[in-house]
Simulated assay, not measured.
Amino acid sequence: MSQPQVSMPLNDTPEQEELRSTVRALAKKYGYEYMAKKADDKEYPTELWKEAGELGFVGVNLPEEYGGGGAGLLELSIVQEELSSQGCGLLMLVVSPAICGSIIAAFGTPDQKQRWLPGIASGEFISAFGITEADAGTNSHNITTTAKKEGDEWVLNGQKTFISGVDQADAVLVVARAHDERTGKLKPALFMVPTDAEGFSKTQIPTEVMLPEWQYALHFDDVRLKDEDLVGDSDAGIFQLFVGLNPERIIATAMATGMSRYALDTAVKYANERVVWKTPIGAHQGLSHPLAQCRIELEQARLMCRNAAARFDQGDLDGAATAANMAKYAAGEVSAKSIDQAVQTLGGNGLTAEYGLARMYAASRLPRIAPVSREMLLNYVAQTVMGLPKSY
């Protein structure tokens, strides 16, 4: 079977340039200070999310017939990167339009698409995504959340952990294992579970990462669902799942590269203005070279993100998977490195509230851990790309 021919323009089209400029203007209107205050006040960035939805940014990748922008993941990655470059990236962009929207648009029935996609596109309906379990980690084959068919209903039982934005969400797209009546075995299946469903409960997980979007543990105790809550085909659940996970990696990559840009912009501005011994500190190679290295690695990660998004948008799903995993690794590394070097450039000021870097220091670890760890990304490249044997 021949692979799709993929073109990847290295520069933005005029439409993409306009999108980037418009999103950046919105991001500057809110900025880091807005997000920090929301986190301190334990509030969501509702105003930013609402305005982004009204301007068509949240659903830019979703089909026009369901209220979306009719563009692709490349455009959604532009939205996420530009927001993040101003210190106000939105974690739920990774989840609601990228993962859930992509899966529903690809596999949902016409009724499901009409039911959920317009709200996801406008931002008025938010869907969280539930896959991670404490005893499964990144091994989705060990998921123990199960859905059993009883009459005309599915009965969901189990639990999930580190699920983002659940109290902001109207529903959670849950990855479960359904009983196959023909074989008696379990197979992956995806269910849209309303957050107000009977038997559904959530518990916030305390973390030291100060973001205005929080993590939750979920519990499903005989949650009853209808067939119309089963997304797509229960026989193709694993394929459907990975069609959603590749967009997750791509938009998470865009968020990480945006964070890196924010850190480097802050450091460069400071290094140009801070004068010691009559010389701006940025003139010293001990500071300028590490910052330049970060900038080079940032541009590499941005190109890798663009490649992954272009492959996904043009239907090269196998190529998109490889590119998305590589891009996610590169972005995670450079975001952590850039923020670390930015703090070092500012010295003591790098730890003050004024510059907004210290708070981002803990957040810079997230792209190296979630939604998939750097170690599992390296496993993927070693085994899938290079043909090396598995250790597990």
Rank of each mutant, 00 (worst) to 15 (best):
T352V: 03
R306P: 04
G319R: 08
G332C: 07
Q293P: 00
V343E: 01
A358T: 00
N307T: 12
R306S: 08
E297K: 14
G356W: 10
D340T: 13
A327P: 03
Y355S: 00
M304A: 15
K328P: 00
V334E: 07
G347T: 07
L317H: 10
G319F: 08
G348R: 03
I296R: 15
G315S: 08
S364F: 09
D318R: 07
R295N: 10
G350V: 05
A324G: 13
L317T: 05
L357S: 02
D316K: 08
G348M: 02
A336N: 13
S364N: 11
Q293I: 15
A342I: 02
E333N: 11
R311C: 11
A327D: 02
N349Y: 11
A320W: 12
A321D: 15
R306Y: 03
S335H: 05
T352R: 08
S338N: 08
G356Y: 12
E299Q: 14
R365N: 08
A292Q: 09
D313F: 04
E333R: 14
L357T: 01
S338V: 05
L357I: 06
R302P: 03
L317P: 00
A320G: 15
E354G: 00
R302K: 15
Y355K: 01
M360H: 03
D316S: 07
Q341D: 12
S335D: 05
Q314D: 08
A327V: 01
R311S: 10
A353M: 05
L351H: 13
G315E: 08
G348T: 02
A309R: 11
Y355G: 00
G356Q: 11
Q314N: 10
A309P: 07
R295W: 01
G315M: 02
A330L: 03
Y361K: 14
Q314F: 03
M326P: 00
M360V: 00
Y329A: 13
V334A: 04
A358V: 03
C305K: 14
Y329R: 13
Q341K: 11
Q314T: 10
C305W: 09
G356N: 10
T345M: 07
T345R: 01
Q300F: 08
A324W: 07
N349L: 12
R359W: 04
E299I: 02
L317I: 11
K337E: 01
R359M: 10
D318C: 02
G347V: 07
E299P: 03
M304P: 02
C294P: 07
E299W: 03
L317V: 05
A310P: 10
A336E: 12
Q344E: 06
K328F: 13
L351T: 05
R302L: 14
D316M: 08
I339A: 00
E333A: 09
L366D: 02
A342V: 04
C305H: 11
M360D: 01
G356L: 12
I296L: 15
N325P: 00
N349A: 06
N325V: 15
A331I: 06
N325M: 14
Q293T: 15
T322Y: 10
A336M: 10
Y355R: 02
